[in-house]
Design a binder for these strands. Structure first.
Length: 313
DNA sequence: AACAGGCACAACCGCAAACCC
DNA sequence: TGGGTTTGCGGTTGTGCCTGT
């Protein structure tokens, strides 16, 4: 017995929405609301669409106040800083951008921002192919004794890579001249951004504060230490698991860690940083957002080793 | 001019959480 | 409290347009 389908796939229409379908859905929702049941809605108005499809169409396209078109540098900055902080929590990131949907933000990140930040489009393909080839190698070639471990998620890999690049930029600010990070393009913006979620999650009391600060060596030094350790870990002479776990713990602590809350996981040197005492506070009607949301778990350590090798760390 | 590959965006899929009875 | 249903989310895919060769 599998999971029951949410709709009858045989009779449900798929693919792009026609203007007529849009009009039907929009008119109905504007007049009657969703009725609290997306599954029943298409049947009610005679649309041959899955309820989920209707919901998505409404939220991402038909809903009032949806903003289409180019993202502003401020929005770029918000997306980048939040992505580095919390990863691919697109709905949360989108909640900080009035009129933007999670799908919009996700697409924008995947097609533009990511490439702009990483700045290694061509190179990346070659490397990811190498990584893919490496994944296909027998477990004994590719994994440590633990075996059968899950690979890092793509977003975790990206965040590692972004942190790596960030570290490089902090070491050599001039290197950013040709490919500045969005927040660096925006040097003259106000020194503090305070975002309040008041859009799609209007009941949310989530607050994220991102500030720009002057250059400081603390994070740069700290990152240096982490990355040197990572390089040492990746070298053939130091493949012990205990080292790997230590690196992970330190990296995690540096970026998100419990013991680090006093300094708020701050990122200095012109990079948006989250507010000190509670670098990422999230309280949605009493629900606490997990602080350590980077899926960089001890069980992924061997893959981290692979990563450091593939990316020439 | 024709073709191939890249890119951007919309839409779909499957899973897990939330909700309801 | 447990099971079924619905919703929300993130990842992935499909498709049309653009660009380079």
């Amino acid at each position: 017995m599998g999971r029951a389908p949410c709709c009858d796939k045989a009779t449900v229409k798929k693919g792009p929405w026609s203007p007529e379908e849009d009009a039907m859905l929009k008119n109905h929702i504007e007049e009657h609301g969703t009725g609290g049941n997306w599954i029943a809605l298409p049947h009610k108005i005679g649309l041959k669409r899955c309820g989920k499809s209707c919901r998505l169409r409404w939220l991402n396209y038909l809903r009032p106040n949806i903003k289409h078109g180019d993202f502003t540098p401020e929005e770029d900055s918000i997306i980048c800083s939040l992505y580095i902080s919390i990863g691919s929590r697109w709905s949360i990131i989108a909640a900080q951008l009035p009129g933007r949907t999670d799908n919009d933000v996700k697409n924008y990140w995947n097609t533009k921002l990511k490439k702009r930040l990483l700045g290694r489009r061509k190179d990346q393909r070659r490397r990811s192919q190498s990584a893919a080839a490496a994944e296909e190698m027998p477990a004994s070639d590719n994994m440590n004794d633990a075996g059968g471990e899950r690979p890092l998620s793509a977003s975790a890999m990206e965040r590692i890579q972004l942190c790596m690049q960030l570290q490089e930029e902090l070491q050599n600010p001039l290197a950013m001249h040709h490919n500045p990070l969005p927040w660096q393009q925006n040097k003259h913006a106000q020194s503090n951004h305070s975002f309040n979620s008041n859009t799609t999650t209007s009941s949310s009391s989530m607050n994220v504060t991102v500030a720009e600060h002057g250059q400081s060596s603390s994070l740069s030094d700290h990152l240096n230490g982490q990355l040197e350790s990572a390089a040492a870990m990746a070298s053939p002479s130091s493949g012990e698991n205990s080292n790997v776990v230590t690196i992970e713990a330190e990296l995690q602590e540096l970026l998100y860690g419990e013991g680090n809350q006093g300094r708020g996981g701050a990122i200095d040197g012109g990079v948006p940083q989250v507010d000190a005492d509670c670098w990422w506070s999230y309280d949605l009607q009493g629900k606490q957002f997990p602080v350590n949301c980077w899926d960089f778990t001890p069980e992924t350590s061997s893959v981290f080793q692979d990563y450091t090798s593939v990316y020439d760390i």
